[in-house]
Each structure stands twice: as C-alpha cells, then as structure tokens.
C-alpha cells in the first residue's frame, strides 16, 4: 500500500503544487487521476516513487517513509512511466532500453531475454527491437517508455498519460494489459485526460483541481455527474452526454460505456416496437 498523509509540496520557484493531499493506493486497485492542466497530477505521481519528497506531510510505500529511501530502492516496487516519453529514453536500441532496468536489478540473461520479448510483443513493438528509440514516432516512443517499466513488473505501476499518441487499437491493447496486471494483484494508477478511455476501463477515479483532491468515486458515477465533471474541468464521455439527453425515456443516469449503452437501448427498442429486430 502507498499512502500520502497530508502532503503539501512547493516547487523551488515557489509554486504550490500540492495542498493537504490524502491519497492511498492499495494492492490490486486500479485508479485514474483526472483534472485540469496544472492541477498537480504529475507532481503527485512523482511523490509515489519518491522522485519528489513532500515539503510537509509524508508518503509511505509499504509502510516505509519515502524520505528514508533512495529512488533506486523504491523503483523496484514502484514503476513510473513519464508523461513525456523523451525523459526516459537513452539506449541505442529499443531492446536495450527495455532490458536496462532488468540488468540493473541483476536478473539472469535468459530471464531478461524472455521478459523483454514478452513485453515487446504485448505492446506491438517487436518489429522495432533493434531500432533506436529516437527514430520512432511519438506514439511508438511512448510505448517503449511503457515497456521499459512494465518489463520489471513493479508492484505499483504509475502511468502518466499512457494513451498519448496511441490509436484505438493500441489503447485496447493497453487496456487489456492493465486489466491483466491488476487481476494479478498489482496496483495501477494512471493519470489521464482521455475520458473515453476511462469510461471503457472503469477504474476508481480521483479528481484533482488546484493542488487538491476534490472528489472520487467509480468511473461511471464520476463521469456522469455534472457537478464533479465541472469541478475538475472534464467533459463527459459521449455515452454520458447521450444518456443525459435520453433521460426522459427512463434510462439510468450513470451510463458511460458503449456496451452497456447498447444493451439498454436494445431492450428499449424491442419494448417500443414490440418486435424482434429484423436482420439487415
């Protein structure tokens, strides 16, 4: 478990990025942090792996204060994938980049090889194994940065804007990957502006605004609430907007996902028409 207790953080320039933040990540949980540009999400993420230490308050990773640990010690447990992929990449090839941390942690060569291969495959990067990360497109680079952290299977995975540059198919892959991880008992925290991706993943949502946590709840509840959406500068996913308009027809108010939407509409259309659908 990672716990932030009454965390405040001020950058050296004087900007107050976190204020009285209480937040916790349990094993096996899946959390999305959302909120306006400059809300403090990345600053919070960097506290989870000890990259930043609170100005006051404390952060505990499995009971240990991050102030007493080095980032290298914490990294094995807490993997952070940066918002900007270029902040991480430095190796000559994608393969080396993904193997880097595993080597540092002292894994034997055969384990490294299978682990790298598996991770590259799952993120659709195998064809670039011998390419330099700097020759890749923005979305591809983002996936390399992800692979480099996923490869060592940290207990806590912090993903800062993982869907940047990804097409819909890549997002689906990523979603399956995340589901697989947290079903294995890993904790996944993702920071994202992609409301449609959150609607499809259905994690717990934590909302931030101006350095504070301003709300939380399940994705369907949060993303369909006018008040919460407004508070965190979000926009409702399309299904929530659609069902807000269809409310007079007696639909539930918390539909955010397209598959649930389809089931509800099918039932209603059959009821109204009093007949089964004709195949086209």
């Amino acid at each position: 478990m990672i716990t932030l207790e009454q965390v405040w953080f001020k950058y050296p320039s004087g900007s107050l990025a976190l204020q009285e933040v209480d937040f916790s990540v349990e094993s096996g949980s899946f959390i999305a942090i959302m909120g306006e540009n400059g809300a403090g999400k990345t600053t919070l993420a960097k506290h989870l792996n000890g990259l930043l230490k609170p100005s006051s308050g404390r952060v505990l990773v499995d009971g240990e204060d991050t102030r007493k640990k080095s980032v290298a010690q914490l990294a094995r447990k807490v993997g952070l994938v940066f918002q900007n992929p270029d902040h991480l990449l430095f190796s000559e090839s994608v393969r080396q980049e993904v193997a880097f941390a595993l080597k540092n942690f002292g894994y034997p060569a055969d384990v490294i090889e299978t682990q790298v291969k598996r991770t590259l495959e799952s993120l659709d990067l195998s064809e670039y194994a011998d390419t330099s990360p700097f020759l890749l497109s923005g979305g591809e680079r983002k996936r390399v940065a992800l692979a480099a952290v996923l490869a060592w299977e940290p207990d806590y995975l912090i993903l800062d804007e993982p869907t940047i540059g990804q097409d819909y198919q890549q997002k689906e892959r990523l979603r399956n990957f995340i589901l697989q991880l947290y079903s294995q008992g890993k904790a996944v925290v993702m920071i994202t502006h992609d409301v449609e991706f959150v609607a499809e993943c259905n994690p717990q949502v934590v909302l931030m605004s101006k350095g504070k946590v301003v709300g939380s709840g399940s994705a369907d509840r949060v993303l369909s609430s006018d008040q919460l959406v407004e508070k965190a500068s979000l926009v409702k996913p399309q299904m929530a907007k659609l069902f807000a308009r269809l409310k007079p027809q007696g639909f539930p108010g918390d539909v955010v996902d397209v598959h649930r939407a389809k089931m509800l509409l099918e039932a209603k259309l059959v009821e109204v028409k009093g007949s089964v659908p004709q195949s086209p």
Binding site: G138, E161, T163, I164, G165, H193, S233
Partner: peptide, 13 residues
Amino acid sequence: DEPTSFLDPKTAE
C-alpha cells in the same frame, strides 16, 4: 499535431 494529447478535456474543446 495531436494537440489534445496533453490538454485537459475542457481546454481541448
């Protein structure tokens, strides 16, 4: 070029 990737949803709009 993918302007909305770093923008919060309201700003993107």
